[in-house]
Write a protein that binds this DNA or RNA. Sequence first.
DNA 1: AAAAAAGGCTGCATAAATGCAGCCTTTTCA
DNA 2: TGAAAAGGCTGCATTTATGCAGCCTTTTTT
Lengths: 250, 250
Amino acid sequence: MQSNTENIQKMRKKSMSGISCNTCENAKCLMKKNIASKIVLDFSYEKTDINCKKGQQFIMEGAPVNGLFFILKGKVKVFRTGINGREQIVRFAKEGEIIGHRGFGTEEYYSISAVALENTTLCYFSKNLLQYALKEDASFTYDLMLFYANELNKSEAKVKSISQMTVRERVIDTLLYVNRKFGQLNGYINLQLSRKEYADYAGTTEEQVIRILSVLKKENLVIAKGKRIGIPDVKLLKREISEHNFYLDT
Amino acid sequence: MQSNTENIQKMRKKSMSGISCNTCENAKCLMKKNIASKIVLDFSYEKTDINCKKGQQFIMEGAPVNGLFFILKGKVKVFRTGINGREQIVRFAKEGEIIGHRGFGTEEYYSISAVALENTTLCYFSKNLLQYALKEDASFTYDLMLFYANELNKSEAKVKSISQMTVRERVIDTLLYVNRKFGQLNGYINLQLSRKEYADYAGTTEEQVIRILSVLKKENLVIAKGKRIGIPDVKLLKREISEHNFYLDT
DNA sequence: AAAAAAGGCTGCATAAATGCAGCCTTTTCA
DNA sequence: TGAAAAGGCTGCATTTATGCAGCCTTTTTT
């Protein structure tokens, strides 16, 4: 739970592959979107690339906030330790997404942990430099503000879903979320998660997820072979929750 | 659920008392904090004062977003319609706070409703003018960004609380939240809410709140006379949840 | 002050969710 | 390839939460 600065130092050395934001292909990345700005362009050269192996943790809950990560390539799980040490997954992220932004605001310490779900490359920006760029470029700041505004909307949609949907609905919602974000590969969701991880996202227990998944299988709403889970008909599955829940899109 | 523009037009006429942000006493208000900036100062003259009587609704869920409200004086309840028409209270707000900011981001329509809990005066800023000011003044935008970042942290703390605390803990958490925000008056919380409203905030039912309140009364953790609820010893009550929940401060 | 309405309370039946325990299946690694 | 480990599955007992119904109390209205 202490500073993970040393860790990051080590990781940094491993790679300076130096993919510039200029030539980066993540069109949805906030940096890329604002690269036309001189301030952002200059700032983008200050980034450090960090390689993480599958399973490696690069943010520790409770460690001081030093900067911001963008995912250049890979998949990440963001979680925090809840009551009784129960793990709560806040979200999953893929290339182009920001990690560690919750450390802004008044917080001095990360309120979440982040771990790579597969080999992942991160772009790291120091907090000081970022703050400088933000105070200079209102348009860039405005974009980041909009990002936060949208994250807030999503988070509140989640409050609504957790407090008013049944466990079954929440599990379905989780399946749809992961499927939407990572897409399908050979008919299966392009990310393998354990039942426990689904539970930690849906806010329930492993057993409950298992039970519900096996029912969904029998109803032919999902297919599952071990950790591989597929959704043959997204619309059909969506219908299971959308009856009372129109605009849920976490 | 349709546009409430006409409504607002009507309300506007009622008052042009014209309290300038310059002389306003809400030191915590985002406008006031940034009033040193010429851009913000100029912008602040564009505000309209709106008077709302107790019980009056000034934002309707689903109506198009036209602007932003700040509370000059009074108390407000922010809520949305959940599953089965069940009301979900998102938060309570008092003077200096922003209402309707969730309408920024990608949203074109308000995702929440807002109603005055007592006679309330609002400062209204049009969205267009605000956007202009934001794009001009990076420091102002940065402040609003931080505000969103903090709101996000709070919202996620709420996700955690709802998904991992028991109903009893959530009710206690709600009591502490309302007490913290509105303070005490003559030994009672300075805001009278119905059991139903406590339930809609805590994400449970009216009966559950009633049951838990009467237990808490027997345990001398709260006092209650009708709608008046008091917390004799905040620390003691806090202890009921803080055992497994250290940093919850929604 | 009396009547009406709104809000609050409680017991009971039911439903939903959980935790445990034992067993089965898939994956990993030597 | 075979053993060990990790992950997945299911029935059962228990806990937690809910909804209903009837009654009581407080507040508001006339």
